[in-house]
Design a protein around this nucleic acid. Structure first.
Length: 915
RNA sequence: GCCCGAGUGGCGGAAUGGUAUACGCAGCGGACUUAAAAUCCGUGGCCGCAAGGCGUGUGGGUUCGACUCCCACCUCGGGCACCA
């Protein structure tokens, strides 16, 4: 009976030795002359549930890639750490009145155990934890740099706030004016914004905790509330975050998603005068439009309900009560309601009107909640003929719809308008003539190749008139950086009534989280830190007077925005990382993470890095992008079952009978579907169980074999068996110690049926090539298939108690297997007498000439259908092959009496006859 | 609605213009066994006795030849969503 791979002993043994010998330790610059390679996986949040089987999929993938790089001679950095500030620990603290550090430590220990048991080549000497004060000291230090800098629009970069030029008039206005001028430009600034507020939990929620307008914790509806928050001015980096993507190798879908999220749109701002008989209360409404060329067709304007103009012109609005009612109703509407009901509503501001600058005509002003307060200027010009939303609104409220049928001839005349009442009006604009081509009318909306030209003309006209200018707008907002929470990095600022906001001196960092008695947020929604007077009350580092500490903490995204730099120099207590180490290791060569982080963590950390880069804390040699390449793993799903009504039911209520799935109790038919793993469906696979049953090597290899790396795949408890059989086979081959030298192989009669020595040699060389290329291209599933094919060929001889390969070839086989099954390969390697690790041995080379066979099977087609196959020499001439093809018996039958019109030979592949 | 991805045996999947279904799971037949498990050998798209025909979501097209390229559509998954 073949011996099975005794994974329990083998895996434990090597994990211990690797750790003791520092097999995977990265050398510091100077220690190694090798090229560096920095592979990075997103460090996990250590949850109470422990590792999900999804985590090891990406850890294994990059483990394989970095192991290969190491064997190719690179100095590899492949680190791991813990992103450990977060909500679950805080909720645990509230519930158990215990310090969240306790819960966190327990989870970290569990994650350490779980990641170690899988045998990854992490350099554990560089392990980091974001909740460690020695780590978050630098997170706070960086926040201070943000606070003490501004963005120079001309240079498009961050600079120290002391370098900000103060205009003379501000200077004259005094110290407070100067301070306000600076504060309004800092990269970290505090402002009143609308936040998601859960009235039941009395807590402010981050957007990601209030998805769909529902509180993540109590599932109740979320309200809007105004609150002062610290913000990071990420929008200043919008253009660079888009443009500098050109320097990096991210998956296209990641780039696209980031670009769409930033949502850059180019257009113009236009000022509309509010019609007034009395010149003293002249007012104007500024709008942003991407289609200034349709200005002729602007037949009304819409303000968001919150727009300040309503308040400013209150006295002139004749239906003020109606307007106020609408404003109130709109304020109460949650995002959820807004999303569910997109029916247009609105109220006209009676008594006032605006003037369309192209026509001089008065147009009505409305307020409506389909106009968003926080995009553009919170007001729009409505062009119902060229915008679906405006069209819908105009239809509902009977507003005129004017189609700009022709490109605006900016000189003598212009388009023709058709109002809803069917009347014709002339639109006139006194300016230069636009003489472009006609514009196609597409389902009622103006559009066409010449739109871009028309826009340019219109912008020029607006600028000439002084009523508008070119303008770029972005969808994304500044980063809300405050959390009214306990379990996060304290924001290292104090407020002094005399000096305003002041950063703590660096010497006072880290500002450690104090212990509190109660982790509940306070009634006002402030962080629990606000309830510790002795912590809150402090001295102003500037003037020495009484001051109060900021009680907000940083979001979970703070520590993860720069951790990849800390790995370069994790124990440095003088700097977040030494410049020469950053110069050597940065940028990260390959960064793997989930798609869900594309618009959050990935964008935040690029921004964070750019600020440090601009300020000179990241050496210029590193470049302005932290990650050279970014790839994304997919999810590991599970099988689930639906009952006959299409409802998902727990897996343990279903069984398989005669190839069909039935509900055990009722015998009713159930359908197998693929779903996310969930406790309620009882289909969660626990890595601990998998490792206990099959071992780490099998688990790793199965996760690679399960399917293409970038595609979701369901975990199959059946499928993993195939991988175990495969590794048992590898082990079995390893036990047949005697190996033949090459000369012996040829003499030993192993040239009979099936495998001849030369063909094994060809297969081995091909496999080395294929596996290497597949690893580089992240096609791990096909690499595993190829290793199985080679193993099957080897094992065909296992019965002869004689492995049909030379020592050298056998070692090459173990080496290409080593990144996938590191424990098994290491054990067999050492059984050959090696003292050093296989994982530090050189990656095998293949001989291209040995991959090419002498003869090749060529298919023969007649009229596109395969009718036969011939064996020809690889370098046979075309005529020789065609003749051989014609004489193939079955082909001959089809060619009999036919006239061959065309004959094609594709070298080594196919012959095609057309008759 | 917009953007992205995917549809191939009973199942996970392979093949990016050249013999569709590699590799693995399940199935079937056999060997070993008192028996079972494990292991090994064989078999393996559908129709057909066969010759042969039909087959990669659907319908068209390009080509000697299409899972692969082009056009139109359907279904499923993900992201964004009144962004002017």
């Amino acid at each position: 009976m073949p011996e099975k791979y005794p994974f329990q002993e083998v895996e434990a043994k090597w994990q211990k030795i690797w750790e003791e010998q520092g097999t995977y330790r990265a050398s510091d610059p100077g220690e190694s002359k090798a090229e560096k390679y920095y592979g990075l996986v997103e460090f996990p949040y250590p949850s109470g549930e422990g590792l999900h089987v999804g985590h090891p999929r990406s850890y294994t993938a990059l483990d394989i890639m970095t192991r290969k790089k190491r064997m190719e001679g690179d100095n590899v950095l492949y680190p791991m750490g813990w992103d450990a500030f977060g909500l679950p620990a805080e909720n645990f603290a509230i519930k158990n009145k215990k310090h969240p550090a306790e819960f966190t430590a327990k989870n970290v220990a569990n994650y350490q155990r779980q990641t170690r048991m899988l045998g990854f080549g992490f350099d554990w000497s560089r392990e980091i934890n974001t909740t460690n004060p020695a780590y978050y000291k630098w997170t706070q230090w960086m926040f201070s740099r943000f606070f003490n800098s501004y963005f120079d629009d001309k240079q498009q970069k961050a600079r120290p706030i002391e370098e900000l030029e103060i205009p003379a008039d501000v200077q004259v206005a005094g110290e407070v004016a100067v301070r306000e001028y600076r504060d309004a430009r800092r990269l970290a600034y505090k402002t009143k914004i609308t936040i998601n507020w859960c009235p039941r939990d009395k807590i402010g929620l981050a957007n990601e905790e209030a998805v769909g307008g529902v509180c993540d914790r109590c599932h109740g509806p979320v309200e809007k509330r105004e609150k002062e928050q610290w913000m990071l001015r990420i929008t200043k980096y919008a253009d660079r975050l888009i443009d500098e993507l050109a320097q990096v190798n991210f998956l296209d879908k990641i780039k696209t998603q980031q670009i769409n999220w930033i949502g850059r749109s180019e257009g113009a701002s236009v000022k509309f005068q509010v019609a007034s008989s009395k010149s003293q209360d002249a007012a104007e409404i500024e709008v942003f439009t991407t289609r200034p060329d349709t200005l002729f067709g602007a037949t009304y304007m819409v303000l968001s309900p919150e727009h300040e103009l309503v308040k400013n012109l209150e006295s002139r609005i004749s239906n003020l009560e109606e307007v106020k009612n609408y404003q109130e109703a709109a304020a109460k509407k949650s995002d959820l309601e807004r999303q569910e009901n997109k029916e247009k509503t609105g109220v006209e501001l009676k008594g006032i009107a605006a003037i369309n600058p192209t026509t001089g005509k008065e147009i009505p002003i409305w307020i409506a909640d389909y106009v968003l307060a926080d995009y553009g200027t919170g007001a729009i010009m409505a062009v119902p003929a060229h915008d679906e939303r405006d069209f819908e609104f105009a239809k509902k409220f009977g507003l005129p719809i004017v189609k700009v049928v022709q490109p605006p001839a900016l000189d003598s005349c212009a388009g023709i308008s058709i109002s809803t009442k069917g009347q014709l009006d002339d639109l006139r604009l006194e300016s230069e003539c636009w003489s472009g081509q006609g514009i196609a009318i597409n389902s009622g909306f103006i559009d066409g190749l010449e739109t871009a030209k028309a826009k340019e003309k219109m912008i020029a006209w607006l600028e000439g008139q002084g009523i508008g200018e070119r303008k770029v707008n972005y969808k994304f907002r500044d980063w809300v950086f405050s959390r009214q929470r306990y379990w996060g990095e304290p924001i290292p600022l104090v407020y002094c009534s005399k000096c305003g906001w002041v950063a703590l001196p660096d010497s006072e960092l880290p500002l450690e989280l104090p212990d509190v008695a109660n982790y509940e947020p306070t009634d006002t929604g402030d962080s629990p830190l606000a309830s510790i007077p002795e912590w809150v009350n402090t001295k102003c580092p500037h003037c020495g007077g009484a001051a109060r500490r900021e009680t907000d903490t940083m979001p979970g995204w703070a520590g993860s925005s720069w951790y990849f730099m800390r790995y370069c120099d994790p124990h440095n207590d003088k700097e977040f990382a030494a410049a020469e180490k950053l110069k050597y290791w940065m940028p990260v060569d390959l960064y793997n993470g989930g798609m869900e982080h594309t618009t959050l963590h990935l964008l935040y950390s690029r921004f964070w890095y750019k600020v440090l880069f601009d300020l000179g804390f990241v050496p210029a040699e590193c470049g302005s992008e932290p990650y050279r390449a970014r790839v994304s793993h997919a999810m590991i799903l599970a099988y689930a079952y639906e009952d006959k009504n299409g409802h998902l039911i727990p897996s343990d209520t279903v069984e398989e009978r005669d190839g069909k799935f039935v509900v055990t109790e009722t015998g009713e038919e159930a359908t197998q579907v693929i779903a996310k793993m969930s406790k309620s469906l009882k289909n969660v696979v626990n890595p601990d169980d998998v490792v206990a049953d099959y071992g780490a090597d099998v688990m790793r290899m199965y996760e690679m074999f399960i399917g293409p790396y970038d595609m979701d795949a369901p975990w199959s408890t059946q499928g993993i068996i195939g991988v175990r059989r495969f590794l048992d086979k590898v082990w079995g081959i390893g036990q047949n110690g005697a190996r033949s030298p090459k000369s012996d192989m040829k003499a030993s009669g192993m040239t009979g049926s099936g495998l001849r020595a030369p063909s094994y040699e060809r297969l081995l060389n091909y496999t080395i090539k294929k596996v290497g290329e597949d690893i580089d291209g992240m096609h791990f599933n096909t690499a595993v298939s190829q290793l199985m094919i080679l193993t099957n060929e080897l094992s065909n001889f296992a019965a002869s108690s004689h492995v049909p390969t030379s020592q050298e070839d056998y070692e090459a086989y173990l080496k290409i297997l080593a990144p996938f099954a590191p424990h098994l390969a290491e054990e067999l390697w050492h059984r050959l007498g090696h003292e050093d690790s296989i994982h530090r041995s050189p990656w095998p080379k293949y001989d291209e000439s040995k991959i090419v066979a002498d003869t090749v099977a060529v298919a023969v087609q007649v009229n596109g259908k395969v009718r036969g196959q011939i064996e020809v020499a690889i370098d046979a001439g075309e005529q020789t092959v065609l003749d051989a093809a014609k004489n193939e018996p079955n082909v001959k039958k089809y060619l009999e009496g036919q006239n061959v019109k065309k004959a094609i030979y594709v070298k080594g592949k196919i012959v095609s006859f057309v008759v």
